[in-house]
Every structure is written in C-alpha cells, then in structure tokens.
Amino acid sequence: MATKAVCVLKGDGPVQGIINFEQKESNGPVKVWGSIKGLTEGLHGFHVHEFGDNTAGCTSAGPHFNPLSRKHGGPKDEERHVGDLGNVTADKDGVADVSIEDSVISLSGDHCIIGRTLVVHEKADDLGKGGNEESTKTGNAGSRLACGVIGIAQ
C-alpha cells in the first residue's frame, strides 16, 4: 500500500500549488496538507474528481469521485461524495494553506484517490446545502481553477 501521495495543481491562470497526502494505516485517516497560491481571497471548493484525465484541462477530470452514488455534502457529513473535501481558505495575498484530515478518502482500496484528479474551484462549496439540484452534485463551487493528478510519492 502506498502511504504517501502528492498532487501538483496547475491551471490556465495564476492558480498553482502542491498538496501532499499521507496515510499511516490502511483504514486510518489521510492527512492532506500543502499550499495553493494565486486564488482570490475567501473560500474555494476542494474536491477529488473521478478521473485522472487532464487532456482537456480540468474539465476532463469528470464529476466528483463518488463510488457510493451519494449526494454532495461537506467533509463531516454522512451523506457526501468520497471526493468531497470541503473548502480551502485563501488569505488576502491569495494563498491557501491547506491542513485537512479526512477519514473517507484513502490511498488504497475502494476509496483510493491515487490516479484521480484534485481540483480547486472558483467559488465556495455550499456543502450540499444550497437548496438546488446543482448543490447536491457540485456544491455550486463554480469553474475549475486548477487541477492535477494525484500520484504515489516516496
């Protein structure tokens, strides 16, 4: 089992970053940390998408990683996509320092995120509470600013 993974985020604009993942036990939580720069100040949706395909930019990554066919939600919700990591918060300089621990994603097994795409979005994720159909699919997080395929790390 891989215990570490990394993702280099890039987009068409100024947004870029490096996100690290570490899972010490196969059924334990995954620590997610790193930094994203070039964002507007505020909240930005942060999700693992189904495919590791960036051939047409971030759009070819498909929908959120959702092997259990659930509705979109927040990272602490029972009803959520596996890939729903909530929001990252950018400061006035456009930098989001990421520090998350998640017990639904994994670096092995059915919820493995390796080979899938991590995406940072234009807007805040409403965590499935926006009151419309799009909220239950995407959290109304808007366009995909930057993305990268999650790969095994040393």
Rank of each mutant, 00 (worst) to 15 (best):
I100A: 05
S108P: 01
I113M: 04
R70W: 10
H64Y: 07
H49D: 06
E133V: 12
P63R: 07
G38R: 05
N132V: 10
K137W: 06
E122N: 09
G151S: 10
D93N: 12
T55N: 13
G148L: 01
V48W: 00
N27Q: 15
D110K: 10
L9G: 03
G17M: 01
D126A: 06
T138R: 04
N27C: 10
V104M: 13
R70N: 12
A141F: 14
I105A: 03
E133R: 12
S108A: 07
V104Y: 15
F65L: 11
G115A: 02
G148C: 05
K37L: 08
E133I: 06
G148Y: 02
V104L: 11
W33C: 14
N132E: 10
R144L: 13
A146I: 08
L118N: 00
I19Q: 01
P75L: 14
H47V: 09
V8G: 04
A56H: 07
H111W: 06
S26P: 02
P14R: 11
G130D: 09
T136G: 07
G148R: 01
S99Q: 12
L107F: 04
H121R: 09
K129N: 10
G142Y: 06
H121G: 14
L85W: 00
I36T: 00
E41L: 03
H81K: 06
W33R: 09
A2C: 07
S35N: 12
K10G: 13
G151Y: 11
V8N: 07
K76H: 13
L118E: 00
N140I: 09
W33L: 10
A5H: 00
I19N: 00
V82E: 01
S35V: 14
L43P: 13
G52E: 11
D93C: 08
N54D: 13
E79A: 13
G34H: 01
I105R: 02
Q23K: 10
I113F: 02
V95A: 07
A61M: 01
T55I: 09
V82N: 03
G13E: 06
F46R: 01
L127H: 04
E41K: 15
A141R: 08
V6W: 04
P75V: 15
A5E: 03
D126F: 09
D125Y: 09
